[in-house]
């Protein structure tokens, strides 16, 4: 492994990661500067609801596609979401595994599974880009950051397909591209919509607390019976 690749996969990543962490700390401090409003009224709703249950339900909402009409009705979209986010998580994980625990990626099955995941994420990214451009409602709300963030993750997933085998001996190009892109990703994330995962615990916590206190969460759903005359 060349010194350049060693630097790119090690020190550069740590620098980018530290930068991201610092910006995130500022970001969270900024968010916490705003006062959180509470629920002063007595709890309402049924016996099975509470603030605590609401918070847990709210946090787990995204893992329960049946809990929201939007994810129930758009199951293919939800599946894309799952695959895409798993790929991003795996991608970040890989940036640690390659320099610090390369042995974990030795088995070919692991490499192939990762490559399939990254390829799927890349395809989903392309489809999401098409959707963002072709659907008038989505196009209207899309900012340059939305397009760039999606493009970045799509290209990053594509680059990861070639980096996953971790074979610098066959050429350092794919790994170099992958690690430089990862570093850029880490630096860019705090300024982009990709940092939504930073806010997710907050938005979901407060929404869940309110809805739990008021007896709305967990949502009670009564499914429509199938017509018996057909």
């Amino acid at each position: 492994m060349s010194e350049t690749l060693r630097f790119v996969s090690g020190d550069l990543q740590l620098m980018a990661l530290s930068f991201m962490a610092i910006v995130y700390i500022f970001r969270i401090r900024w968010l916490l500067r705003f006062k959180a409003s509470g629920e002063r009224q007595a709890p309402s709703g049924g016996m099975g609801t509470s603030s605590f249950k609401g918070i847990v339900y709210s946090w787990a909402n995204i893992a329960m596609p049946w809990s929201m009409e939007s994810t129930r009705h758009m199951s293919f979209f939800y599946l894309q979401f799952v695959v895409f986010h798993l790929a991003v998580a795996a991608n970040i994980g890989m940036s640690f595994v390659i320099p610090y625990a390369p042995g974990l990626m030795k088995p070919m099955i692991v490499v192939r599974l990762l490559q399939i995941l990254f390829a799927a994420a890349c395809a989903i990214g392309c489809y999401r880009m098409y959707r963002r451009l072709s659907n008038p409602a989505i196009r209207l709300i899309s900012t340059p950051d939305d397009f760039f963030s999606l493009a970045l993750l799509t290209v990053w997933s594509f680059a990861s397909i070639f980096a996953a085998p971790n074979r610098p001996d066959l050429g350092e190009g794919p790994l170099m591209v992958y690690f430089i892109m990862t570093a850029f990703f880490l630096v860019y994330v705090p300024f982009s919509k990709i940092s939504h995962y930073l806010y997710y615990p907050f938005t979901r916590f407060y929404f869940g607390r309110t809805m739990g206190h008021r007896g709305v969460y967990p949502v009670k759903r009564v499914t429509q019976p199938k017509p018996t005359n057909i």
Partner: peptide, 26 residues
Amino acid sequence: KLNRQMVGSLVGCVHCGMCAESCHYV
């Protein structure tokens, strides 16, 4: 008027568009 809940909602949107199908106006 801004509080933490509102700020969270203002910065948290990822423009996924999943809200659209739930609105009777849409």
